[in-house]
Nucleic acid binder design. Structure first.
Lengths: 332, 332
DNA sequence: CTGAAAGCGCTTACAG
DNA sequence: CTGAAAGCGCTTACAG
C-alpha cells in the first residue's frame, strides 16, 4: 500500500539497489548528487521504510521486547524509562508487551507476539514465567534477561536488587533505631518464590546477629498487595510486642498504614514502618513512608545494556535506605 | 536462524506450499494425514512462524500499536487492559510504545517504531501529538484513534469521557451537597488544551445554572500533577470562602489533601474534595477521595473495537460520581 | 558509483 | 489434495 523503494526507483530512474543504498546510508556506495535526488523523491512521495522487509533479509532486528506483568505494583515505569534510555543510546527500539497478572495464557500470548517476529532480545520485568513459557523462550534462540527478579539457579540471567541484602538492611536499620520486635509483612515465601525467601533470609540473619529470637507470628506472608497489608496489620494488632514492621512493597506498607489508622494506631508513634521499593507512592501518603529504595531506573538501564552487549553474568543494583517519616527512634 | 517451512518441507517431503497451508490452517487444502505429519515435524523441529514474512506477503498485520504517554498519571493500566481484552477477542496482538512525557523526539521515535512495520492500527492514549508527528501519523495510511483525549475539531477520532460533563457533574454534586464557593484546581486551560477548557466550561455552566457568581481565584490551573495540587492548596489557604474543590486528577487531589494536612486543615471537615479520574489511588489515601470516576477499561475496549471495525464516529464513555469520604454535606 | 540478480520466509493463484 | 512459481519490500555480493 505504502510507497516502496521501487516507486522511488521509478520516479528517479535509478535502480532499486541504488535507492536502497542511499536510503540505508551505505556511505561510499553512492554520490552526493544521487543521494540528493533519491532523498528528495523519498520525502516527496512520503516514503517510509518497511522494517519488516529489512529484518527479513538482514536476519537481524533492532527491537527489544519488554514483557511486563500488569501487576498491581507500580515500579515498572522507572525500569522502562531506564531501558528506553539505554535503547535510545544504542539505537534500538523498544516495544512493550503486557503479560497479564500471573496468567499462563496471556503470558504465552505476550511471549508469542514478541517471538513471532525478528527481535534483538527480550527483557522480562518481574515476570515469573510458567515452565512451559520458559521453554518457549529458551527454544526461541533469542537473547533474554530477567529484570527485578532473581533466581536460585543461575542458569537464568537477571539484573535485580539483592533481596537478601534488602531484608538484612531493613532489619538492621530498625534495630539501630531501637526496635527489637520486628514484623515482616506481605512477602511470599512459598517454595518457588525466591524473592520472598531471600528477604526472609536477610531478615533472619540480621535478627540472629543481634541475638533477637524470631517469634513465629512476626511473619505475615502475602502477595505484595495492598490487601495483604490490610490483613497483616489486622493480624499484628493483637501482638503488643511488635514495634516496627518491614513491608514487602509500598502498597503493602500503605495497607498497613491505613489499617493502623482504622485501629487508631498512629504511625510512627505506635508502630514504625519501613517499606521495600521506595516508589513515589511513599511520598504521597501521610506520614511519608521510610523505605529500602531500589534503583529501578538503573536496573532497567543495566538490564538493557547487558542484553545488548550479550553479557552473561548477573548483576545486582544498589539499594539504600530513604529516611522519611514512618520510623520512630526508640530510646530505651 | 530459526527453523523455517523449508526445513519442514525437507523433513516431511512435502512442498513448502503444502506445509504453509497446513501451518496456517487453510482448511480444505490438505488432508488430515498430511496435517498430522507436518504438524508433528513442526513441533519436533521447534518451528515458530515468522510473522514478519507473513505480513510482508499478505500486506496486513494483526498487531495494534498502543502509544502511551509515560505520564505521571496512572490510568493507562485499565485502558490497556480494556484494549487487550478486545484485542484478544478479535485475535489481534497488541504492542505498547512509550512516547515520553510530552517530548517531541521520543514521541516521534515511538510513532516511527510503530509505523515502520505493517500494523493493523494505532491507538494513542492521552497523547497530545505534536503537529509534525500528527502529520507523520496521517500520512502513514494506517487507521488510528485517540483514547482519553478529545478534540475540538472532529477531524480526529477519539473515545474519551465528556469533559464538559465531568466538570458539570462534579460541580453540581458539590452544589447539591450545600457548597457554593467551589474551587477548580490542577487543570490546564491554555489555548491548545481542550480537556481543561471543557471541564472549565462544565464547571461554569453548573455555577451559572445555580446563580453562583464565579470568583476569579477559585480557579487554580496546573498540569494535573501532584505538585500542582500542593500549590493549588497553598493558594486556596487564604481564601476562607472556599468550602470545596474539584481537582483535575487523583494526584492533584492527593496533593491538595496532603498540603491541607500541612496547613492543619481537615478534609472533609474544613474543606471538601472531589477528584476527577477515580483510580485506585483514591482508595489508598485517608480520607478516601470522592471522585468523578471515568470508565477507563471501557474506554480502552471501545477504542480498540472502533479501531478494529473501522468506525469513524467518536464516542464518550460513561462517568459517574463515586462517593467516598472527602466531601462533607453542608447544612445551611 | 551503479545495476541485475538472488534471496530472506512466507502465501496464493494457477495448473494438475 | 498437492506442487511449481511468482511475489511481498528490502539488501548485498558480484560484475562492471
Amino acid at each position: 500500500m505504502g510507497v516502496t523503494i521501487k516507486d522511488i526507483a521509478k520516479e528517479t530512474g535509478f535502480s532499486v539497489a541504488t535507492v536502497s543504498r542511499v536510503l540505508s546510508n551505505k556511505v561510499g556506495f553512492f554520490s552526493q548528487d544521487t543521494a540528493a535526488v533519491v532523498n528528495a523523491a523519498a520525502t516527496k512521495l512520503g516514503y517510509k521504510k518497511n522494517m519488516a522487509a529489512t529484518e527479513l533479509v538482514t536476519q537481524k532486528s533492532s527491537v527489544i521486547a519488554v514483557i511486563v506483568n500488569s501487576t498491581k505494583t507500580n515500579f515498572s515505569d522507572p525500569i522502562i524509562e531506564g531501558i528506553q534510555q539505554k535503547a535510545a543510546e544504542s539505537d534500538k527500539r523498544v516495544i512493550i508487551l503486557y503479560a497479564g497478572d500471573h496468567d499462563a495464557t496471556s503470558q504465552r500470548r505476550a511471549l508469542s507476539t514478541a517471538l513471532e517476529r525478528p527481535i534483538a532480545g527480550v527483557l522480562l520485568l518481574s515476570v515469573d514465567l510458567f515452565e512451559e513459557n520458559l521453554q518457549l523462550l529458551k527454544t526461541a534462540q533469542v537473547p533474554f534477561r530477567f529484570i527485578s527478579i532473581s533466581f536460585k539457579d543461575s542458569a537464568l540471567n537477571y539484573v535485580a536488587s539483592d533481596d537478601q541484602q534488602i531484608g538484612y538492611l531493613a532489619t538492621k536499620y530498625l534495630i539501630k533505631m531501637g526496635h527489637r520486635c520486628i514484623g515482616l509483612a506481605g512477602i511470599d515465601i512459598e517454595s518457588s518464590a525466591h524473592t520472598g525467601k531471600m528477604r526472609l533470609a536477610g531478615y533472619k540473619r540480621a535478627l540472629a546477629e543481634n541475638n533477637i529470637p524470631l517469634q513465629k507470628n512476626w511473619i505475615q506472608t502475602g502477595n505484595y498487595s495492598y490487601e495483604a497489608g490490610l490483613l497483616a496489620m489486622q493480624n499484628y494488632s493483637n501482638q503488643k510486642c511488635i514495634s516496627a514492621v518491614i513491608t514487602g512493597s509500598d502498597l503493602v506498607g500503605i495497607g498497613l498504614l491505613n489499617q493502623a489508622a482504622k485501629l487508631h494506631l498512629s504511625i510512627p508513634d505506635d508502630l514504625s514502618l519501613i517499606t521495600i521499593d521506595g516508589t513515589y507512592l511513599c511520598r504521597i501518603v501521610q506520614p511519608q513512608l521510610t523505605s529500602v529504595t531500589q534503583d529501578f531506573y538503573h536496573m532497567g538501564y543495566l538490564g538493557a545494556e547487558y542484553l545488548i552487549s550479550d553479557q552473561q553474568q548477573n548483576a545486582f543494583t544498589d539499594v539504600k535506605i530513604s529516611e522519611r517519616e514512618s520510623v520512630k527512634k526508640l530510646t530505651l
